[in-house]
Design a binder for these strands. Structure first.
Length: 203
DNA sequence: GCTTTGATGCGCT
DNA sequence: GCGCATCAAAGCT
């Protein structure tokens, strides 16, 4: 696989991008570049191809449904705050949206790997590019994101950022029910780039 | 303090 | 496509 030209690290998405309702942020994150610079200086990451929105109110599937706890407090942080939690002995990463005190967030479910395929393969113990970052827990393992990173500010953090990527046309976006939840399944809060081989599962 | 339960992924079929 | 390992947090008692 040929490596895509490196992205503009100095142009992270502004906080205003995240200061909107979670479904809008989830939709607009498609096509953006998620990048991580390791301590060794490697650039890791790729293009966001699948997201899910979790709402502040009336969303029983959202971790914020029962109000703030020590675990979910990052969901209530400023827009752009990283919320990392453990599930099934794995990690998932979200970005807080809307406003301080509002418990909404966007789960990053999958990216198309573009940079640092080698180091990410090592981190994953997996060489199949389709099994590198095609799921929320795979993604965190590939990028080395853990609960130690919970609460960090993605807008100002130098080594983990979301950058302006490519525009995704409405005709190339599909929405549908979220994955792996028991309640709130009827809400179409999952967003996906149709023309990708790197979503977490065939639609 | 103890039990239950997942916003999952792997390995095998 | 399906079973299950794995563990932190929630929710009880």
């Amino acid at each position: 696989m040929t490596e895509t030209p490196l992205p503009r690290l100095n142009q992270p998405l502004p906080r205003s991008f995240y200061a909107r309702p979670a479904p809008q942020v989830a939709r607009d994150l498609l096509g953006k570049s998620l990048v991580r610079v390791t301590e060794q200086g490697d650039l890791l990451g790729g293009k966001i191809v699948e997201t899910e929105a979790y709402l502040a109110t009336d969303d029983p599937a959202s971790h914020s449904f029962r109000g703030p706890t020590r675990r979910n407090q990052s969901m209530f942080g400023p827009p752009g705050t990283l919320y990392v939690y453990t599930i099934h002995a794995k990690y998932c990463m979200n970005i807080s949206t809307e406003a301080v005190g509002v418990g909404s967030a966007v789960l990053i479910r999958a990216v198309e790997p573009l940079w640092g395929i080698g180091p990410m393969s090592v981190a994953r113990g997996q060489s199949d590019p389709r099994k590198l970052t095609s799921g929320p827990a795979m993604l965190c393992q590939a990028l080395g994101v853990t609960t130690a990173d919970d609460g960090l500010d993605l807008v100002t953090l130098p080594w983990l950022r979301v950058l302006q990527g490519v525009a995704v046309e409405p005709s190339d976006v599909q929405s549908g029910p979220r994955i792996g939840i028991r309640q709130g399944q009827e809400l179409p809060l999952r967003f996906r780039v149709i023309a990708t081989r790197f979503a977490s599962r065939p639609w």
